[in-house]
């Protein structure tokens, strides 16, 4: 019953969300495509809501994926520094003023993707030196990498001029304000690809979520599967971060809430997590737009304000 209510509430927010924002829309104007209301609705609000939904799905699913593959609820792309890697990559591209487009994908996205991939491979390489019992040290490695990237980004700021820095600072706060349909479509395809891949490997993931050794013994080509899944997730995270900037904590919070709602094995939580993540980020974005602030509050600030205390709660409840 509670579950149904929660899903119903989230779905209602998704439907109401495009009608909320700084400008009040006139509902009957929406049928006239020439009106200002219609333009705001179709070119700004609707793509933004869809973009947020796909972004939330990608963040939540990657969170669930990382937690399961590394068998630790604190391991997500954000806490392991993958998001920071993507941010640094995209930041460098912005600083260099790169605007080349390869196969319809901008240089900023490509740099973001490489930042994410590089971080993943660095983590996998470094994790070889950890013994089985020290797997949680991987989290420390991720934090070390994050700090390093942050300093490197500071260096980029230091070298940049005022206009670039203003862009960069806005970028690092995370923002879901996008214009037009290109980004939502691209992100939608990637979100679908990520969901389908994870779903296709759901039983491998279920076995890897028990133990790595056990998975190998039951016939999972664990190295291959792990690499493949991490590669697709980095592609999604890299692309997302290069468009919206880093949006923290969704990958940590959403899988946890879904687990509380549905205490089931990971294989049965994949689709639910993807949907919940989408709805949840739309909710957060709706809050930023509905707040009576002078200019719009960056989404990264909202998710971090909710996520920070939640992270502390997770750590404490785990120790207990």
């Amino acid at each position: 019953m509670i579950r149904a209510l929660i899903w119903f509430a989230l779905l209602s927010i998704l439907i109401v969300s495009p009608f909320l924002g700084a400008v009040d829309l006139h509902f009957w104007d929406l049928v006239h495509t020439e009106s200002l209301s219609a333009q705001i609705f179709y070119d700004l609000r609707l793509p933004r809501v869809l973009f947020s939904f796909f972004a939330g799905s990608i963040l939540a699913l990657s969170g669930l994926l990382f937690q399961t593959l590394f068998r630790n609820p604190l391991m997500t792309p954000y806490t392991l520094g993958v998001s920071s890697g993507a941010t640094l990559g995209a930041g460098i591209a912005i600083k260099l003023g790169l605007s080349t487009v390869l196969f319809g994908i901008g240089a900023v996205s490509l740099f973001g993707f490489f930042g994410a991939i590089l971080t993943i491979f660095l983590l996998l390489y470094l994790s070889q030196f950890l013994r089985g019992s020290q797997q949680s040290s991987l989290l420390l490695l991720g934090i070390a990498l994050s700090l390093f990237y942050t300093s490197a980004l500071m260096l980029v700021f230091y070298l940049g001029n005022t206009i670039q820095n203003d862009m960069l600072i806005r970028f690092t706060m995370g923002s879901l304000s996008i214009i037009g349909w290109n980004n939502p479509l691209l992100l939608g395809i990637i979100a679908l690809l990520l969901t389908l891949t994870i779903y296709a490997y759901r039983f491998e993931l279920q076995l890897l979520g028990v133990s790595q050794e056990g998975a190998k013994l039951k016939g999972v080509e664990s190295k291959k599967v792990t690499l493949w899944l991490l590669l697709i997730a980095s592609l999604a995270i890299g692309l997302l971060v290069s468009i919206s900037g880093p949006i923290g904590f969704i990958g940590l919070i959403v899988p946890h809430i879904v687990t509380k709602l549905y205490p089931l094995t990971v294989e049965k939580r994949i689709i639910k997590t993807a949907l919940f993540g989408g709805f949840f980020l739309v909710l957060c974005d709706t809050i930023t737009r509905a707040l009576p602030t002078q200019s719009e509050l960056p989404i990264g600030i909202i998710t971090a304000l909710i996520g920070g205390p939640f992270f502390i709660y997770l750590i404490i409840s785990r120790v207990r």
């Binding site: 039983f203 076995l207 979520g209 050794e213 039951k218 205490p263 089931l264 094995t265």
Partner: peptide
């Protein structure tokens, strides 16, 4: 050893069929 704490015995035994 297991991380996925919601796995039931039935689901766990079934994993042998992978």
């Amino acid at each position: 050893e297991f991380y996925d704490e919601f796995l039931t015995v039935e689901e766990f035994v079934l994993l042998g069929r992978f």
